[in-house]
Amino acid sequence: MSSSVDTQARGFLTSLSDTLWRKPGLLVFLLILPPALWLGIIYLGSLFALLAQSFFSIDEFTGIIQYELTFKTYAELFRPSNFDIIIRTVVMSAAVTIAAAIIGFPVAYYAARYARGKWKALFYLGVMMPLWSSYLVKVYSWKLILAKEGILNWLFETLHLGWLLNAYLSIPIIGGNSLSVSATGTFLVFLYVWLPFMILPVQAALERVPQSMLEASGDLGAHPAQTFRHVLLPLALPGVIAGSIFTFSLTLGDYIIPQIVGSSRRFIGQAVYAYQGTAGNIPLAAAFAVVPILLMAVYLWIAKRQGAFDAL
């Protein structure tokens, strides 16, 4: 005679959860199925459709897309006018990322190690609040701040430092007629808009470093600068890398900020926008869109080689 510890038979939901409890694999499968479909078909599918486009080319006379596999479109990326766009974008992304790390680290450090209670709440509010308002509104308000009639210019004039600003603006490449139409202006707005994406991961990484670890370093003879170099920075590095992935890739792909604030020189995002729109050159737009993906892959590979994720 078989005996059972299960004393009662119950309804459908109970037997369903009993089944799932007995087969944990089935539960995981059911949970993962919808996001996997979304990720596989809609998300990655569109990406591969884009990738595929980049291997086609456009007929220069008729403007019709020729559906034959070719690297012709990629070769076009290396034409000086196009390659300049790539270089410009990469330099801008790198500059924004480095500046965001330099500015963001002390802020994150303060928040992680010193801010408590009310001050911590204030920190989160201060960092997150800019993310709540529209991105366009922020960019336009920066245009007003940086314009020739703007508050920054006024401040320099009031302090009798107008000559300094003018001298700076006369420098080629980074200067311009006013800050709002210079590469410096574009840089400042990028830095402002993406800074929270650097601060938050760095703060999270620093928060996980126990106080005793810093004390141990000091105890073993390291002065604060050495503790920073040998303990704090390596342990915070995964956070800095995470933050830099955001700032770097967001700058690489953005096309609105340089359009509103900056010189007429184009960035990758603007090139993609122009080629897929008015120019109707989808293959070249797709080829441009592949550039940031490749750059990020190379960047992460180097970061891993350098041991940036060892502390994870």
Binding site: P210, S212, M213, E215, A216, S217, G218, D219, L220, G221, A222, H223, V231, P234, L235, D310, A311
Partner: peptide, 20 residues
Amino acid sequence: IPPYKRNVNTVFQDYALFPH
């Protein structure tokens, strides 16, 4: 005299080994 100039060493309760 700061900790890094003192001729004593500590074994911490949580050991505080550097994970990296």
